[in-house]
Design a protein around this nucleic acid. Sequence first.
DNA 1: ATAATAGTGTCTCTTAGACAGTATTTG
DNA 2: CAAATACTGTCTAAGAGACACTATTAT
Lengths: 237, 237
Amino acid sequence: MPLDLQSEADFLKAYDQNQFDRPSITVDLVVITVIERRLQILCTKRTDHPFKDLWALPGGFVRMEESLDQAALRVLQQKTGLAQVYLEQLYTFGEVQRDPRMRIVSVAYYALVEHQRIQPLIPGAALLAIQESSSTLPTLGHEGQSYPLAFDHAAIVATCLQRLRGKLEYSPIAFGLLPKLFTLRQLQEVHETILGHKLNKDSFRRKVLASGKLESTGQTEQGKDFRPAELYGLRSS
Amino acid sequence: MPLDLQSEADFLKAYDQNQFDRPSITVDLVVITVIERRLQILCTKRTDHPFKDLWALPGGFVRMEESLDQAALRVLQQKTGLAQVYLEQLYTFGEVQRDPRMRIVSVAYYALVEHQRIQPLIPGAALLAIQESSSTLPTLGHEGQSYPLAFDHAAIVATCLQRLRGKLEYSPIAFGLLPKLFTLRQLQEVHETILGHKLNKDSFRRKVLASGKLESTGQTEQGKDFRPAELYGLRSS
DNA sequence: ATAATAGTGTCTCTTAGACAGTATTTG
DNA sequence: CAAATACTGTCTAAGAGACACTATTAT
């Protein structure tokens, strides 16, 4: 906490001094989904300067009467209509010049959503593929085109990918990108999409079944040309 | 980023509206060290309400002209005189009522320092042992006594411990808690202190040597009653 | 020599990867 | 039946834990 060694008077003085001169706080959201083995994020097109016509992450100011988590949930609700998704604080970005207009500190969150649940999108929003190029910040892809992100949002997305890959090793978060019931193959595909490389099928099956996190349903998927796989769900107990 | 769908005029209007009514931003520091197989953190005693006479984490306001990282480095410098330490952003705490005086969002950082380097402490500061009790927030210990932390700082310390334990699996951060040259036994002791349980000596040696992160120096430790161990350093290349 | 810790070699057990073989579905 | 994928069983290789043994130092 601030100013431990100062008196209350000093604190309030500092408070007054800073009252009209302090950073704004926003939350920015990396809403992630997977479509056809490609990682996609929800973006909104900027209609004004700065970064006019570029794609940016959805975000909004943190209000005085809401916590950071609540602000992130509210923005998510506004942009997607969704509640009940996996949402986690990612990192806080606070470079002085990250927004050219004014000093803004942004607390980034990421959400994992099955892409079906995001439709329909609000006007001005789109799901765009993440294009990674090693040793450079990611860009957005759509129909062969490549677009840069506004502000420092490419760095936010890059941090998000890192976190996601790290977490996959020991966390069950990939379930958030799938429907309630899914096959092991689907789960493996999502893992491969996030990690960017193929996984060993046998080993993946064994590990995920041994984890005890999945619940066998007895049902099988429908409409496949060949042998349908069993559907699993997240263990309730 | 905020307000993607609004016009610049709307943005500036919102800016004006928020100018006199927005959270303050501070950085709080969890400065960690190990003394005699116990995890210790640097605390400062509060001299005023709220939480008068309780121990708190050192912190300070983020200034307009400095980034979050720079603010953390500055506070660290002020409280310990140190630079060149392992310092990493931990998490951002933003509950509405976390400070009873006013709305403050705190970006927590943690630093790992060899305890010798922290001495002497500035007045009002102390190194206090972390006391963990399962399913409750940690408290501070000193000479048999147990003290609660001010504000939500116990939650910050708890988050820090979690992060530290998670990172130990695959990161070399424990080196920050040791002098430049150290023995494998010392490194293992630090790991055991952080994790809170014993490690297998053979396995630990193999893993850490195989990681390629250590550099053999040929030197051995001095002043031991029995066979001295070899000193290792962090690999420079 | 003895006590105590540093460091090495080897065995076993667990787990991941590889691969072969069986099961199930549609056309 | 053929094609394609789901699932099972087994072999192998790598790594972790256990343990025995050797090495080095002070008293």
